[in-house]
Design a protein around this nucleic acid. Structure first.
Lengths: 259, 259
DNA sequence: ATTACACCTTTACGCTGCGTCAAGGTCAAG
DNA sequence: CTTGACCTTGACGCAGCGTAAAGGTGTAAT
């Protein structure tokens, strides 16, 4: 397959100027030029462009990209594993940011307050995550998961014991939810106990508690497939059940929920 | 609470230069200056900076950010809903990119091939997603979810009927997995049928099939909490069971799996 | 055969969002 | 009263393109 600048540009979703610039700096040169000087790209160049865009997406500058992919030990598949890890890290950071937004919304709407430094969680987290990314694997190999948990505990500003407590409470919420589910009634005593447990669990990671924030998070559990799947493990429709229980618990019911 | 440039900068994870620049362009001016001209920021400025960073994270240029947050109809909480949606969209795009990397790795390692235009899924998707973001809500309100499904089908290059088939197959995989789980044996006939169904399901979104890619994806189901939770819905340890079944099915067992 | 039009080329200047000196004033601790 | 960590303004530099200018090319339709 052969492509002119514009064809390749359209396929990859970049501008022709970008391709010409990449040629100019020697990052991606066309396979050849035709008799009138037109740039012609082949499938090797397509692959290379794909790689470049992967790395660009990760925020690497073009110079670094060039070094990475022109590295003699760069063998393609293996090199793609790195961006994969980076992408996963990015998603983790995004999750934090989203949680932060959720919490900020609730804090702004409700009466809860947020410590100033809490407001930048997820932004600075990027730095921590980058570290984790760089050293995480080595550490994991050397010292096993226990060390990682320690590190995670640190990240959450917890001591190890607290982190253990946090983890076990997490499981307790799930098992209580499973029980409560069977009653089928979000206002049942069991369901309300589950909501209370969930609040307790929350207090490990949230600086202050507010009904609005709690209710908001519960709604997010339903909206977000990820969280939904997690709580649906407890029982069919577990996320929705938990949300309803929390709505009753916080006394927010229908009103003030996220549309 | 009052902050000097550096204190605020450290808290927010930006440089002092950035804060001075934001002052220079009138994006974020300090609450006041002390007798010797030092910039002093208050809690209002902290909140504003947080907002700015949210929008910056979304890729908005500073000019747009200024317009957004200086909009008279900007009331804080409501304005945060937008970045929330955008962040969710970004995560969806990231997921696509990650899937793309997974697939590219398998394609490179295995013998499967990838059509050139497949290689840029997740990059261009950004554009589609941005559209969805801009018009998605309106459409959703006006025409209901059926239209959205149509649109999703289009995004996946499917006709609606195919999309329905795709969706129902998805459910079938889950229910077969639940049954197969009870045998406890990944090489049991039921488990192998589940793997076969999963392969069939895959063929809807993947241009070509390769054992390596299939096995690679199965491993990802275990590694990624999100997918793990989804398949664990079928039964305890569903993701791992499915992976093992697929490993047997593809004949890849231990070898060649992602470490 | 020529005209239209969408493509291609190089050259070059401009922009954003800061990083990075440079040259100097301020403030609290020792 | 000195040291060192802070603060100020001003200026230049840089990546990664966007954008316009001035011109050549390919091909389809008149």
């Amino acid at each position: 397959m052969e492509y002119t600048v514009q064809k390749l540009a359209r396929m990859a979703g970049v501008s022709t100027r970008t391709l010409r610039y990449y040629d100019e700096i020697g990052l991606l040169e066309p396979a050849r030029k035709n008799s009138s000087g037109y740039r012609i790209y082949g499938s090797k160049e397509v692959d290379k462009l794909q790689q470049i865009l992967f790395y660009r997406e990760l925020g690497l500058d073009l110079d670094s990209i060039q070094k990475v992919i022109s590295n003699p030990s760069f063998d393609g598949p293996a090199a793609l594993r790195m961006p994969r890890e980076k992408l996963l890290a990015r998603r983790r950071q995004l999750d934090l940011l989203i949680t932060n937004v959720e919490y900020t919304i609730s804090a702004a709407e409700g009466k809860s307050t947020m410590a100033d430094n809490e407001k930048f969680k997820g932004f600075k987290q990027k730095l921590i995550d980058d570290n984790e990314q760089q050293y995480g694997e080595e550490v994991r190999g050397k010292y096993g998961d226990a060390t990682i948990d320690k590190s995670n505990a640190k990240m959450l500003n917890m001591r190890e014991e607290k982190y253990e407590e946090f983890k076990s409470l997490e499981k307790e919420v799930l098992s209580k939810l499973a029980e409560a589910c069977e009653t089928g009634d979000p206002s049942s005593e069991l369901a309300q106990k589950t909501a209370a447990l969930h609040k307790e669990w929350l207090s490990f990671t949230w600086p202050t508690y507010s009904k609005e924030a709690h209710a908001g998070l519960a709604q997010m559990y339903v909206d977000d497939e990820r969280f939904a799947a997690y709580y649906d493990k407890a029982c069919e429709g577990g996320a929705k059940f938990l949300r309803d229980a929390i709505l009753v618990y916080t006394g927010m019911e229908q009103e003030n929920s996220f549309e």
